[in-house]
Structures are given as C-alpha cells and as structure tokens.
Design a protein around this nucleic acid. Structure first.
Lengths: 136, 136
DNA sequence: ATAAACCCGGTACCTTGGTATAGAGTCAAG
DNA sequence: CTTGACTCTATACCAAGGTACCGGGTTTAT
C-alpha cells in the first residue's frame, strides 16, 4: 500500500460505526468525497474520512438533516465563509427545535386533557376521548 | 339517489378538507370502510364518513400515526373494549411525546452551548462549532 | 347533444435515511 | 490453489403519508 493509513470501506465502516452501504450512500449524496481507488477499483480512504464521518454523525445527533449537513460542509469549504455564517445555521436550527418543542407541548397538553376527562370505566361508546376525536 | 345524504368521493373530500386520492388511500389502508357503489362503480358515502375523516385528522393532529389510528378504530369496534383501553393508548402517546420533548431539549441545549462558544468572528477554520462537530 | 367536470383502477412517484440483493470480480490465508 | 472474506456496480426495497398520471367511463349543465 502506498499510504500506510489507507482504509478499505469495511474498515472505515467499522471505525465509524456505520454500515458499508451507508458510506457508499453518503458518497452518492456528496457528503463524503470520492476516495482514491486501487487498480482493481477498491475505495481507499485516508484518515480524514473518519473525521468526516464523525462530523456527519454529530451533526445528525444535533438534528441536522443530511442536506443541511451538506450545506455546512460546503460552507466550510468556501473561502470567505465566516464563523458567523455557521453560527447562524446553528441559531436557525435552535429556532426550529424550539418550534417543534412547542408543538409537542401543545399535543401533550391536549392529550393530557383528554386522558383526565376519561374515568377509565365503561364501554367505548361513552369514551370522552373517542368522542373528542370525532367532534372537531 | 336512494340516500339523500350520499356523498361522492369529491364532495367527501371537500367536506373533510382532504384530497380525493387521500380518501382512496385511506380505504386501501383500511382506515375508511369501503362504501356502497352506484351501478357504474362510483363510491357513495354516508354522513358518518365525514365523522370518520374528522376522527382520523384529529388523531393525526395529536400525533397518532395512521397505524395507531387504525388500532384505535378497531379497538372501538371490538365488543368488550373499555374506555380504559383507549385511555391507555392516550397515555402511551403522552409518554412518547414527553420523550421526544426531552430529546429535543437536549439537542437545544447542546446547540445553544455551541452557538454561545462561537464569537461569530473569524474564518471557519477557527469555528468552535465546526471543531466540536468533528471532534467526537 | 356535447363539453366540462367528475370518477374509476392501476401504477408510479415523492421525501428521508438508509438497507438489501444479485452477480461479478478481488484479496488473503491455509 | 482453493476457499472465504471482501469489494464492486446497479437496482430494488423499507417506513409514512400521501400525490400524480394514465386511459378510460359517467354525469351534469348548457
């Protein structure tokens, strides 16, 4: 091997804790750059691919979609992009997360109201939950 | 028409604020019972189909999936099902919603921490957000 | 009586984030 | 040198909740 650190796709997958198919999928999506190939066509990854995979996974854990992660990655590559650009993406995401939380709080309150209206006794014909769902 | 209240699929769709295709889809999924047909094969719905659609929509707004709604509907039809069975479905859903809220709170806190670590100045090479994402 | 509006079934397509399968070629160990 | 593990591409499939198109038949309004 020319590069002593080169990883085959299977090793990269084990390193990153993802499936081989996921790596190929990320490559198709443009999230991972196409690596060099051996003469027989095998992908060979350098160490930075591991960091790239970590970036993707961490970003996913923070609620970014693959498309948004792509956006973050290309922002990073563009000269002239500042830290403020990245921070604004983070703040947008915070806003979206807050909105989702509010939606879920509303749902939770509505469900809690219904559940407490139901004594839990009797047939379904008299269930206040079912009635509430039918009557808009 | 035999039934003065009979609705064609288009009228039911407008009543319920959904697409015609959605109604056919619900029928395929078993969420709406197959209605009677005219001699030429047109679907004819009675008034209760409107209430059924409302039930589905309201349940969706409360976070139930179509599969769960199917479950609620068949529970309602089964003799011997009690109000308590329905209430327990509601409580399960409340638990799931609470868990989602907690997940989102964690995400929000992590993002907020990252955003406040970033002064918003300088190139992306020094962005603490990007660094945090790369370093697991 | 004819055009507009409606409806039919079947199939394909969309999003998101992957996963699976098939059929073939390649690499390493015994 | 053969077997098993690995990799390749291309294509199809999954959940969820629909939406769209096609080529035809029906109903309604003018």
């Amino acid at each position: 091997m020319k590069n002593p650190n080169a990883l085959t796709i299977g090793k990269l997958a084990r390193h990153g804790g993802v499936n081989i198919m996921t790596i190929r999928y990320y490559e198709r999506r443009g999230l991972l750059p196409a690596p060099t190939r051996t003469a027989s066509g095998y992908r060979l990854y350098a160490d930075d691919a591991v960091r790239r995979l970590q970036f993707i996974r961490q970003s996913q854990l923070l609620g970014f979609s693959l498309t948004e992660i792509q956006d973050l990655l290309s922002l990073r590559m563009q000269p002239g992009t500042t830290c403020a650009d990245i921070r604004s993406r983070a703040k947008e995401k915070i806003g979206a997360v807050e909105k989702k939380i509010e939606d879920l709080e509303r749902i939770k309150n509505a469900l809690t109201g219904l559940a407490s209206a139901c004594r839990g006794k009797g047939p379904t014909a008299e269930c206040p939950i079912l009635e509430a769902l039918e009557t808009k």
